[in-house]
Computed example of a mutant assay.
Amino acid sequence: MTDQHPDGWAAVPHVDGIRGTREPAAPVPTPAATGRPRRRLRRRTLVGIVAGGAVVLLLAVTGVVGWTVQSSSHAADRPVRAFLDDLTAGRVTDALDAAGIDHDDQDVLLTDAAYAKASDHVTGYRIAGTRTDGDTATVQAVLRQDGRDVPTTFTLDRTDTDWGVFPVWQLEAPELGRVEVSVEGPASTAVEVAGERVETSRDGTARLAALPGTYPVTVDGGKWFTAEDGSARVAGFGAAGSAPVAMTTSLTDAGQQAAQQAVDRWVDGCVASTDAAPAGCSFYAYGEDPAYTYSNQKWSLEQRPEVTVGGWLARGWAVSTTKAGRATYTADISGPGGVGTASAGPMNVNASGYISGFSDSGATFESAIGNGASDSGS
C-alpha cells in the first residue's frame, strides 16, 4: 500500500504542538486576594445538616400526629363509643364492664344469652355533640333502635390525666330501663322473660333491669291457667322502663275442673259440721233453746250449688253462684217438754268466693260469704 500524503506521516505535527484560539480561563481568586480564608464544606458535613433538618421536621410532624392521636383517644366520647360498640355487637358482659354497671344474679336479663333472645336491639348510633364543664362532660348520642332514633345523654367524669396533659374520662353508669310485668294471677306466678324464669311478687308484678330491646314475655301457669303471650319494649336508657305488660290469666279446662272440685270440698266441709252455725260457711241455723240439750246434730245437703268461675279479681278468680244449693239442719233434743227432734231449713247454700291459687293437690277456694251474711236462716 502506498502512502498518499506527499511528505508522509513525519510531516504531521505532534499533539502537544497544536494551538487553538481559545481565551485563557479566568484566574481563580486565592484566599489572599479575597481578604478572607477559604473555607470548603465537606460532603459529609452538608449531608449532616440536611439530615438534621429532616430529623427536626420529622419530629415536628410526629409530634403533631402524636398530639392529634392522643387528643382523639382521650376525647370524652371515646368511653361512650366503646360501650355502644360492645352493645351493638351483643357483647353484653363487656358493655356492662365498660360502663361500670353493677349487676348480680338477680339481673337475669343482663346476660349475652337473654339479650340474644330479645329483638329490636340497638343496631347503630351517632354522637351528636359533646360538652365539657370542668371535670364533667356530657355526650349526646342518638341510638338507632327498631328503625327509630332514640336520643340519649351520657355523663362522664374526669378521673385523671395522662402525661399531665390528656384527660382520662370515666363513663358514669347509665340508668337502665326495666321490663315491668303485671300478672292478673296469684303471687309467685312463674313468668318467662326472654327465656329467663322469674316469679311475681305479692302484688303480682315482676320488675327486671334491661338493656334497650323488646323482650318476649310468657306466663307459666302449669296445667291450671294460662295467658296470652306479650312483649315488653325498653327504649334506650333511663328510669322510665317499658310500659307495664299486663298478662290476663284464664283457667284451663283442668283449672276449671279443679275449681269446681275446690268448691265442692268447701260445701262438703260445711255440711260435715255438727255446729248449727258452721264457721266460715254461708248457711246456719239459729233459735236454739238453752233449756234443751241438743245431740246428733247434722246438716244434710239436699242440692249442691251451681257455680261459674270468671276472671281474676283482687283476691282470685271470681266464683259466682248461678243456682243456690239447699241444706237442712236436724238435731235430737231433750228438756222440760220431753224429747224430740229439732230441724231448720232448707237453707240456701251460696258458694260465691274466689279461687286464690293452685297447688299440686288442686285449687284453693275462699268463700266470700260467712255464716249466711247474704242469706236468711231459720
Rank of each mutant, 00 (worst) to 15 (best):
G310F: 00
T364V: 14
P216N: 14
L41P: 12
G310V: 03
D133I: 06
L208S: 14
G325T: 00
V307L: 05
T111G: 12
A116P: 09
K223E: 15
A210S: 03
E172K: 05
G134D: 10
G345K: 04
K323D: 07
D160M: 09
T30P: 11
R131M: 04
P174W: 12
D112W: 00
G213K: 00
F365I: 09
T205M: 06
F365G: 04
T189H: 03
G63M: 05
R42K: 06
D105A: 02
A187N: 11
L156G: 01
R233M: 12
D97W: 01
T248H: 04
D220M: 09
G222K: 07
R326D: 14
R22F: 01
H14A: 12
A235H: 11
E366N: 06
A26N: 13
P167W: 02
T2K: 03
V181E: 00
S73V: 15
G337D: 15
A194F: 02
S300V: 14
L176E: 08
Q256L: 08
L143S: 05
G337S: 15
R40L: 13
G35P: 11
R148S: 15
A114I: 04
A291M: 15
W9S: 12
G345T: 06
R19P: 10
A75W: 02
T249P: 14
Q297V: 05
R43L: 15
L313W: 09
V28K: 04
E288D: 09
L84D: 15
A279V: 08
L57P: 01
P212M: 08
V65K: 12
L171S: 14
S378V: 15
A243G: 11
Q257Y: 03
D268N: 02
A11D: 11
D160Q: 00
G52K: 05
T200Y: 07
A318C: 09
E23Y: 04
G340P: 01
V319W: 00
